[in-house]
Amino acid sequence: MSRKIVVGYDGSDSAKAALDFSVSLAKAQGGSVVVAHVLEWSPYSFLTPQELEERHKRRGEELERAETAVLKPVVDGLSDSGVAVSTALKYGHITETLCKIAKDEGADQIVIGRTGHSGLATRIFGSVAGSLAQAAPVPVTIVP
């Protein structure tokens, strides 16, 4: 049975730990890994007219930067790992978008790193790990 793992990846150290964990898991179980990078975005944010005009252009630039600076090094680095690696790059709310990617890809689980914050900021704004654990359609593994 081939198992598919979606790993939330943003280039941070904890995300790298989550990626390593996913790859070794996939290797052991003979599965594949989807490296998912989400660009935080809300269709309800406010922009100036100048930003509206340039939005389409900026979006292209942001996608290209994410592709070359975040995702490509990962795919290149895993090319001889023996694990099938694909990528997903989307705009949106991080938790919602990761759930959607997992659903669309038919994944069996989501793996993410954690930031290690437990202070006031998390109390107010919530954490991705916390809300993902609540909302995900598949099991979630949080890698310290």
Binding site: W41, P43, L52, R59, K90, Y91
Partner: peptide, 16 residues
Amino acid sequence: DPNDAGEVSHFQALAT
């Protein structure tokens, strides 16, 4: 279209 996320939404054009 969800694939257009990151582009200027109707809401944003209206809000601006």
